[in-house]
Design a protein around this nucleic acid. Structure first.
Lengths: 235, 235
DNA sequence: GAGTGGTCTAGACCACTGT
DNA sequence: CAGTGGTCTAGACCACTCT
């Protein structure tokens, strides 16, 4: 046990009193000025503690009025999206990756929606499979914008999964995930090695850097293979 | 457009250089001491900027060595989990809530796993349905710990959904979400108004305050009714 | 108008860690 | 052991907003 910093002790103190219900939602917590007296420290130190609580969303700060315990109107949680290889290996299974198709296109009206979504003029279209112990873990259908990432055109993705390559070579600033359930259609059922109509978990992700779309990927998991876990982040 | 604070401008500057690739993963960014000269400000101000980047996970700080651009090993995104009523109304549909079953139990070996999971001696078991425009939007199966939340025993949940009540009355500090896909079993298919075997999105959530389990809920959505959206949080 | 939070300064001491 | 980041002080000015 190491001694925590003072601003961290203050933050934890205030957090505990809020979670214990001493200060119900809507209540005003002590002014920074009062806290400097209570903890015998400078205003900058209490400010750091109270600002951290505001970042957590536990309190709302209003000038001239004070800081108030927030009414939690919606929960938010942190979703960790690890590399597929790590995900499989974490379960103790053997990981294998297979490239099914690789095609560079000038994006036209006939190309998959995922190529158009990222707003690229040229794109690399990829289909691949990820295995866990010889069972299909996930089917990956991806478009990479060659406008935003021209160097991807020189990569042969038979040896490295596109997700892993992108993670190492392309920084990104923004992403949107959509998680849904769907029945396996005829074609995908064959590639997944399941019966048609079987439930699947589908994760679609779009990634951007500034205004430039980088990639769009659709990952399809047989329902019994995978679940997404999100932890509420306490800070 | 309002003038941003200096520490925010510094943070944004550094972030842009990292995302633009000026400083690749593993590179050392300038020492705080150098940044104070570059921006002609005090060390505390650059420290605030660089600490914010560290919280974002964009850089890693090491004493005596410096601050380094992090290698992004896994993506993380913020998952917003709004109230079901808001979710339905946001789509422009009419919301209706129906309580199917309400039962207080001393938790024994015969009770649903969800009652045992939260470690309660007494629990309230609830089953209810949420409608969007007369179609079933979600089936909710919930256990509330009466050990942790005794006041829930006095609430008749026919008028207010348990999620909404808990959100307003019980502060929580920790939650875990599991999102998966599953086929509708015979009983649930009837309650959901879909055919047996139809794919469903299943969200399970456990909520804690300190060490005390508060509630466990399983929400089952027909696949075509719902998808979870998670935004990567840029800061 | 007065008091709040937001920001910033120009120092300081300390723990840790790489050399 | 020297230099880094981590923390803290005792002030200050400002914008905003409630009264």
């Amino acid at each position: 046990m190491k001694a925590a910093a003072l601003h961290e002790r203050i933050r934890a103190d205030l957090e505990r009193r809020i979670l214990d219900g001493d200060w119900p939602p809507g209540a005003r917590i002590p002014f920074e000025h009062e806290l400097t007296h209570r903890y015998r420290c400078s205003r900058m130190t209490v400010s750091k503690a109270v600002s951290a609580l505001a970042r957590q969303g536990l309190i709302v700060r209003r000038k001239r009025a004070g800081s108030f315990v927030a009414l939690p109107r919606e929960q938010s949680a942190t979703l960790a999206i690890p590399d597929l290889r790590l995900e499989v290996q974490r379960r103790g299974d053997a990981y294998r990756y297979e490239l099914l198709e690789r095609r560079a296109v000038r994006v036209g009206a006939h190309d998959p929606l995922r190529a158009q979504i990222i707003g690229a003029r040229r794109a690399l279209l990829l289909r691949c499979r990820h295995f866990a112990d010889d069972a299909v873990f996930a089917l990956e259908e991806r478009a990479i914008s060659l406008t935003a990432v021209p160097s991807a055109a020189d990569v042969d993705f038979s040896g490295i999964a596109p997700g892993a390559w992108l993670l190492e070579h392309v920084p990104w600033s923004q992403a949107e995930h959509r998680i849904s359930a769907a029945a396996a259609c005829a074609n995908r059922a064959i590639e997944l090695g399941v019966a048609q109509g079987q439930p699947c978990l589908v994760i679609e992700r779009r990634t951007w850097r500034g205004n430039a779309g980088i990639t769009h990927v659709r990952l399809t998991y047989p329902a019994d293979q995978y679940e997404v876990v999100a932890q509420f982040a306490g800070r």
